[in-house]
Design a binder for these strands. Structure first.
Lengths: 198, 198
DNA sequence: CCTTTCACCATACGATCATATGATAAAAAT
DNA sequence: ATTTTTATCATATGATCGTATGGTGAAAGG
């Protein structure tokens, strides 16, 4: 056998090339040839790791999801140890916004893959499941933050997440600057959770 | 000359075929051949009305926008004559949500074209302009509805529009039913504008 | 040592794409 | 009546696509 290589590392590398292309020129510009060129590989090698283009896109979607989860985790971990649930909540939501070029690219590719998923019931179900998980996490945080009406916590969570999603679009479009988007988010958070947690 | 035909009507017919395909199978499945087949025309005839595929997509984006404006107008016009600004506001926002199969298709294609626009600065500027217009319209309605803090009306408008946008995504995904989405929207409207207008 | 395994490559194949070209027929313009 | 214009069509062209195929060289296993 030859040098024995880390398959998953190679796939991630290819996946990264894919989404550099997708972020810069759109998902429609993603082809095996373009990806291979961007990754500095031969087409055959890309085929060796992804038998079909769809596999490549599916892997990229999973990869993207891991990155976003990691960003959320780091955003929460960066909080001072004494930070209450309200700060945690804010850390989670801001981690979902495309506030810098890196996360902008991720969001861009994420939205493109999202639309693609809508035409495929199976993939759509995965997205729905992830979205439902987010809702329950935010609901828990709201309850912990002493949300005024615990019975309405889930409704408030849905509102927050939909708002965050909409702000992400506005950021992508350039309708909002990062500062403006945060202003909108914070203003709404102020309405919804007590300013100083017990 | 032959029968002299309404060019714009023909273009709209082609555009409709395009977006039936895009809604059902994604923008990536839209090709001159597919559109021609769906519209029941020859490829050559489609070319006669749209010299390039990009023209076809650009026209479809304008067409879509007109339809959405028309939906908003009708939604407002359907209100009882005595309806106050708060009802008008709600009519505008719900008209932007994909609550039935027809508007679902429109939203689906709209989002796909939106992402495409992000890779083209000129088109993105058009979308930004439209989005800004929405903001000022909603801001006016909020002020008219006796929004508690007039100075914050614009901030509230941005919140409402981002929320609506996020709810649209949730509806497309099937995370929310129409009734659930309206519950979220109404709950937020209750927080933000006085229940009974003067 | 030799055989198997695996990373990697070059190229071929058939399909599909956007677009170009040239023809036909009918109706308006002259 | 003839010319011009325009709607419509069939087909060609050259590029690009996803994927299949047949290799090569190196390293591990026997």
């Amino acid at each position: 056998m030859p040098k024995q290589v880390d398959h998953d590392e190679r796939r991630r590398r290819i996946s990264l090339a894919l989404w550099r292309i997708a972020a810069a020129r759109g998902l429609e510009s993603v082809s095996m040839r373009e990806v291979a060129a961007e990754a500095g590989m031969s087409i055959g090698l890309v085929q060796h790791y992804f038998a079909a283009k769809d596999d490549m896109l599916a892997f990229t979607a999973r990869h993207l999801r891991e990155r976003i989860e990691e960003r959320v985790r780091q955003s929460v971990a960066a909080l001072p140890r004494a930070a209450g649930p309200r700060h945690t909540l804010r850390a989670v939501l801001t981690a979902l916004l495309p506030l810098d070029p890196g996360s902008r690219d991720e969001t861009l590719v994420g939205v493109a893959l999202f639309i693609r998923a809508l035409n495929d019931p199976g993939t759509a179900a995965l997205y729905r499941h992830g979205r439902a998980g987010l809702t329950s996490a935010v609901t828990r945080l709201l309850r912990a933050a002493g949300h005024v009406a615990p019975a309405e916590a889930e409704l408030t969570a849905e509102t927050l997440l939909a708002l965050t999603d909409g702000l992400a679009s506005d950021l992508l479009l350039g309708h909002h600057s990062p500062a403006q988007a945060l202003r909108v988010l914070d203003h709404h958070l102020d309405m919804v959770v007590p300013a100083s947690p017990v």
